[in-house]
Write a protein that binds this DNA or RNA. Structure first.
Lengths: 219, 219
DNA sequence: TGATTAATTATTGTATACGATCTAACGTTG
DNA sequence: CAACGTTAGATCGTATACAATAATTAATCA
């Protein structure tokens, strides 16, 4: 099943165990997961559709490395869509949703405390996806998923701040708006949160590393 | 070479020559285009990623038939995103872009006059895509593409008005805002245009036709 | 006869084989 | 010695073959 390979690769990308630009050889990936190239190709094409991977004809698949322009666009899109989603979530949020979100924040803190920065970042992204799922709007959810995933690559390339504490701070502020079921507040906090993330990027010049993929996927 | 099959099927769907729910047999499609199932599968998966077809495990691919809920969501999303895109386009539009858009409107009128309603509808959708391309924002453009395509299926299922004249009227109003490079006006006109399209759908819960009893009972 | 089950057919899922294209190494030539 | 063309190896693109699952028809029994 291709979905397993998609999930595995995606998680590795989102946790920054696979760097932008890394080549994903079909044979190599197939070897790791014990499937034929047919399945691998299907998985890689799926990842290409969500812009996590770029496929160059007769050259192969690579982890996408978003340009500076793409980085701006992604965060502009997030600044438009996610505040609306947060407002929708605030309207219909329930007690168990709040519990789930708090659990997420806890896991994020735990990962951060244990020094696993990649995991912490991935969880931080999942927090936004959880909000989208609370909003119960499939179209927006898919858009947010796409944007959050791409943001992970962008952060891998362009993040300049050492701290990620601002992150949990914003998330805490969002939780307050949610518990008070205040759509207006959720909208505004989310917008400023996205703008803040956007401003945390260094968009001058930067080069990206590349490493072996086989051991990165063992996790 | 899968892109050729994707383009062909997509065009057929957008022009309503393929109805929602239609089965797309791999052998049959491969026969039509003279390629093997390998390519067809790749094309169908690509179309599934843009929600134009649904793939059911071990059962095959079918033209998607969006639910009423999906229809609402798609037009809510368009109402959020497309006004912003129209405003961006109004800011940076150039003379040749205006010419291109006018050509499009002309083609749309011609198709309408010749009675080819499917073609006219497809062109009407392409008009929105042209605006997105003028806005020169790849992320938004992809979202708009996805939404416009899905709208075509939604209209095939739920459109209730006989006339599509309102369409060209709105498009003319947009052109005026563009020629005057008035982002504010473009934003507002586009928003009301989308809302108008949304209101042209019959989304009363009554229908949602189960074409066969087998389909109805499977759910 | 009607329904349930077995057998057949058709269609999809996956693996493999072969041809095409790119990459890299090597040797030739100016 | 550098630049270029050639050749060998690796990797991708596509077709085909086989396996697994679903759909259809035939057969059996109450």
């Amino acid at each position: 099943m291709a979905s397993r390979i998609v999930a595995g690769l995606q998680q590795a990308i989102l946790e920054h165990r696979l760097a932008p630009g890394t080549k994903l050889s079909e044979d190599e990936v197939g070897e790791v997961y014990g499937v034929s190239r047919t399945i691998v190709r299907s998985a890689l094409q799926a990842l290409a559709h969500s812009d996590l991977v770029t496929i160059e004809k007769n050259r192969g698949a690579f982890i996408a490395s978003p340009s500076i322009g793409e980085a701006h666009e992604v965060f502009e899109a997030r600044a438009l869509i996610e505040p609306r989603v947060a407002a929708m979530a605030a309207k219909r949020i329930e007690a168990r949703d709040i519990a789930t979100l708090n659990t997420h924040i806890g896991a994020e803190h735990a990962a951060m405390a244990s020094g696993d920065k990649g995991k912490a970042l991935a969880l931080s992204g999942e927090f936004h996806l959880e909000i989208a799922s609370v909003a119960a709007h499939d179209v927006f959810t898919k858009f947010v998923q796409s944007l959050v995933k791409r943001s992970s690559l962008i952060i891998a390339l362009y993040w300049k701040r050492a701290d990620t504490t601002c992150e949990s701070h914003s998330h805490q502020a969002l939780m307050k708006a949610f518990t008070e079921r205040d759509p207006q507040a959720a909208d505004e906090i989310m917008r400023s949160h996205i703008v803040d993330l956007h401003s945390g990027l260094d968009l001058s010049l930067k080069q990206n590393p590349a490493k072996s993929i086989a051991d990165a996927l063992r996790a």
